[in-house]
């Protein structure tokens, strides 16, 4: 491993992949979590249970599943996505979306149900009502976002399986740590681990700062 260029490149790739996966999870998770929390439809509690189970999906299982989809022998093999950053993004989205959906639903369900009536009673349209509830639940919603990011930046099993840990292409911090450990380069592995922790901390710190702004 060459310093510092390669480490920088791996770090940037890790951040990009996890940020995009978290972003997609948010785009999926906010509406679906809201629907599950506020909607009235048949099977709602069943879907909530499915999502809550999904929050604990083992990354390697997700990795295996996504890999089987993307392998040349799989249904989406023609898209040539296996061992690309896109493949990692797909797998990580599968991992973090249930986290964001589940925590979004929990955040909204923890609000006083009468707030909805109150908002309608003040003339809110459906979208204004949802927007106001999101704003009211902004602290737990940011926590959902942090949990989603945390579940993917630190994940190794799926990234290894669908990304392939290919140097200069799909090697991310976690897979690089596994590799350096297997090489016996424990010092480098530890340094990469410290880097990963620092990055996770900085991202969470930034989000917590946004979250706690105006709190006293």
């Amino acid at each position: 491993m060459s310093f510092p260029y390669e480490i920088l490149q791996i770090t940037i790739l890790s951040l990009q992949i996890s940020a995009i996966a978290t972003g997609i999870s948010l785009l999926i998770g906010l509406p679906l979590g809201t629907l599950l929390a506020l909607g009235k439809f048949w099977g709602r509690s069943f879907f909530l249970s499915v999502v809550n189970t999904g929050m604990g999906l083992p990354p390697v299982v997700v990795g295996l599943f996504v890999a089987m989809m993307l392998w040349r022998s799989g249904p989406f093999g023609d898209m040539n996505l296996i061992y690309t950053p896109t493949a990692i993004i797909i797998a990580q989205t599968v991992i973090s979306a249930p986290v964001v959906i589940g925590l979004t639903a929990a955040a909204l369900q923890s609000l006083d149900p009468r707030l909805r009536l109150q908002l309608y009673g003040l003339g809110a349209s459906r979208w204004q009502m949802i927007w106001a509830l999101w704003r009211e639940a902004r602290l737990p919603l940011l926590a959902a976002l942090m949990a989603g990011f945390g579940s993917v930046i630190s994940e190794v099993g799926a990234s290894m399986m669908v990304g392939g840990n290919i140097r200069n292409q799909t090697r991310v911090l976690t897979t690089a740590i596994v590799l350096e450990t297997s090489k016996g380069n424990f010092e480098i592995a530890m340094a990469l681990g410290a880097l990963l922790l620092t990055i996770t901390f900085l991202v969470n710190w930034a989000l917590t700062w946004v979250q706690q702004r105006g709190e006293d």
């Binding site: 009673g121 003040l122 809110a124 349209s125």
Partner: peptide
């Protein structure tokens, strides 16, 4: 519509 109607009133619980 519900929303148009509700914007003529106000509710205090």
């Amino acid at each position: 519509s519900d929303t148009v109607y509700r914007r003529k009133i106000a509710l205090v619980m």
